[in-house]
């Protein structure tokens, strides 16, 4: 009996800690997001939130639904596997609202990005020294970008 009296202050201290723990548990139950732990140790709802972020690139499938003629031209040529937005840039806004003018890419900077000659590039990849090759004449004077090989009697 007297041990309880003389250790009374220790029980009080234990009581304080116990109360703190209980408050923590209550706060925890209220504050932790509901979807936490749904799939693992994280907020499950975060997955859907990230999946909901807006698109900027429409994807070539969307382009081809309307521009099937271009898709056909492309399919037979060297640029068959180059997707539309690789050159035209992100156009999801145009896909959602076709009245938005996507503009035209600038061939002066566009073509050389891939085709400017550099020993760092894979050997088999077609490369030109633009100045030597055309002397400043824009690439699309001779090459049709959607099917760039010069069909009849071209030197290259």
């Amino acid at each position: 009996m007297s041990i309880f009296r003389d250790a009374g202050h220790l029980f009080r201290l234990a009581g304080v800690y116990l109360a703190g723990t209980l408050i923590f548990l209550v706060v925890r139950a209220v504050v932790v997001p509901h979807s936490f732990g749904q799939y693992g140790h994280y907020r499950g709802a975060a997955i859907a939130e990230i999946a909901d972020r807006p698109l900027h690139f429409a994807g070539h499938q969307a382009c081809e639904t309307c521009h099937s003629d271009i898709a056909q031209t492309k399919a037979g040529g060297m640029h068959a596997h180059v997707n539309c937005e690789a050159c035209h840039g992100p156009l999801a806004n145009h896909a959602a609202d076709p009245s938005i003018d996507p503009g035209k890419p600038d061939v002066a900077t566009l073509c050389v990005r891939c085709h400017a000659v550099s020993a760092a590039r894979p050997r088999a990849f077609p490369q030109v020294d633009a100045d030597q090759h055309s002397g400043g004449v824009p690439c699309n004077t001779c090459h049709q970008p959607h099917s760039p090989a010069i069909a009849a009697g071209g030197s290259k």
């Binding site: 999946a51 900027h56 690139f57 994807g59 997707n83 690789a86 050159c87 992100p90």
Partner: peptide, 23 residues
Amino acid sequence: CTLCYHRITKGLTTACCEACPTG
């Protein structure tokens, strides 16, 4: 990188793959 999670869950490829001209 999210591996364009907002794209691949809609059946699209990632922006980098979409824009890569050589595959």
